[in-house]
């Protein structure tokens, strides 16, 4: 249905009936940030952020707390999710700002218009996210167990 999958690594932190709670391993903007976060130098704020991103999936592989798994989602789904989360609010914001400039508004009015555009974009993003969620495009799947090696890539 979704073609190729984009994979990420998550660790099982709890088991609850037929579900497991997973915590994504940090994705850094570069290898240095990523290895620092994975290999035992987690800062308090990083741990809190990861805890906030916990999610539940059906336990199809008899997983236990501490296990690492590879979770995947369709490439197109990730792109759509990014477009909805970042693209729609940006579009609203920039559309409103440029319209204000073309209409000859001053800085104050342009700021107000931009904030209005941002709010409109966020409302649109919320509705689009609901649609994606209802179509099951925002639900990752457990693909396989991951190795225990420390990823220094």
């Amino acid at each position: 249905m979704q073609g190729e999958q984009i994979e990420g690594v998550a660790r099982v932190v709890a088991e609850d009936g037929g579900m497991v709670w997973l915590e994504p391993e940090p994705t850094g903007s570069c290898g240095g940030c990523m290895s620092a976060a994975i290999c035992g130098h987690k800062s308090g704020s990083t741990s809190r952020r990861l805890a906030a991103r916990r999610f539940a999936l059906p336990n199809e592989y008899a997983l236990r707390p501490g296990d690492r798994v590879v979770v995947g989602i369709g490439e197109r789904s990730l792109l759509r999710a990014s477009l909805v989360a970042y693209g729609l609010p940006l579009l609203g914001m920039m559309g409103a700002a440029i319209t204000a400039q073309v209409m000859g508004a001053g800085d104050g009015r342009a700021v107000v218009a931009t904030l209005g555009g941002l709010a409109g974009g966020l409302v649109a993003a919320r509705m689009a996210a609901r649609l994606l969620s209802a179509r099951g495009e925002l639900s990752p799947q457990v693909l396989r167990r991951a190795g225990d090696e420390c990823n220094l890539d």
Partner: peptide, 16 residues
């Protein structure tokens, strides 16, 4: 805006 979106992006993209 969307907890599901937040989780999905959080797994695969650096949100920070």
């Amino acid at each position: 805006v969307s907890p599901a979106l937040f989780q999905t992006l959080g797994i695969y993209l650096p949100l920070i």
